[in-house]
Computed example of a mutant assay.
Amino acid sequence: MMFRRTLLASAALGLGLAFGGAAAAAGMDKVKACFVYVGPIGDGGWTFQHDQGRLDAMAEFGDKLETMYQESVPEGADAERVLTQMALSGCNIVFTTSFGYMDPTNTVAAKFPNVKFEHATGYKRDHANVSTYDARFYEGRAVIGHIAGKMTKSNKIGYIGSFPIPEVIQGINSYFLHARKVNPDVELSVVWAYTWFDPAKEADAAKALIEQGVDVIAAHTDSTAPLAEAQKAGNVVGFGQASDMAAYKPSPRVASIIDNWGPYYIKRIGALLDGTYEQTASWAGMPEGEVVIGEITEAVPADVKAEAEAMIAAITDGSYHPFTGPIKKQDGSDWLKEGEVADDGTLAGMMFYVEGIKGDIPK
């Protein structure tokens, strides 16, 4: 499976801003919105949460909105075929929810200029009818990192990485930085699963971390397998990823990072309906309600929960950014000075670890 989430070139940024010249000419009485999913809607994570966003939009617009979706679409030629069929079937807007759909999206968009295409986590907008959208997942990693640093008894925390791309590296760094802030003795182990959704590989990665003495696990993969392994271990906690994964409350799932796509889908479909639609590149997070921390359970000490909630509030109101200096790179060189905040271009291309993380980023 190709990398679904992002290597955003600095030149492609302009995130959250509308671009002129691509506004919808007039409103519509009814919209047909179509969704292409890389996994099954029952994956419990990434695809499940995108489909929840589709359902949110249906609830919002009622009979003004018709939707269709196709799940488990491979990235590549199959995606181009599915997108073409959707455009021919009368879809007014097509959401392509995996990074590997980027080129097929732009290829098909060129053939159907009157259809709007929205690509999740990519950066190419080769045509006026293509927009992109992403989420600042690293904001959520900061919160769960704080919880991890406070809750670990072994001082060993773990992270299951999917692929070594900037979005994943952002999350690892944010998780570790905030764990280290509250626990200077914490050590981080990273295991790469090289998959977005493969329960067996994700379970093996979790087992490997547990065998190393890790007692808090975070994951940037899509299934509930890491939480299942934590549950088997009995003394390991973890976090819901992409969706709430509530079946594992109150422990081992002590909190979660929820990708809340509903507001974005409602906004974009609503813009088609009212005639205000424009080409955009969106990178939203907690302030916009796109990254949400699920219930922090009673398994988390009350003081730690209060601290985590204060961090959520600060990120949401803009008074705190997870990448605020002083921060050094892994090699000890200065990255951010005291009070300096990382710019989006650097974050979008982040391919380095921060100081204190051991090991190399795979090539």
Results as ranks from 00 to 15, higher is better:
G234L: 00
S282V: 15
D259A: 14
Q231M: 12
V236A: 05
T221D: 08
S223E: 12
E307W: 07
E187S: 05
Q231C: 06
L188F: 01
A302T: 13
S256P: 05
K201L: 14
A200Q: 10
E295F: 03
A225G: 09
V216F: 04
G238T: 05
D303L: 03
D198A: 12
D215L: 13
D204F: 08
W196H: 01
I258N: 10
L209P: 08
G262N: 07
V186P: 00
G294R: 11
D259G: 13
Q212C: 13
Q231L: 10
I217Y: 08
G238H: 05
T195A: 08
I210M: 09
I296H: 02
V304P: 11
L188K: 00
I257P: 08
V182F: 01
A281Y: 12
P226Y: 10
E288F: 04
A271E: 15
A299H: 08
A281R: 13
A218G: 13
P301A: 01
I258T: 02
P226A: 06
P226T: 11
V216S: 01
V292N: 01
E295T: 12
Y194K: 10
A242V: 12
N260G: 14
D244N: 09
E288K: 03
A233E: 04
M245F: 10
G275P: 00
F239T: 06
A200I: 10
D198I: 14
G270H: 07
D244K: 11
V304W: 12
Y248L: 03
F197Y: 14
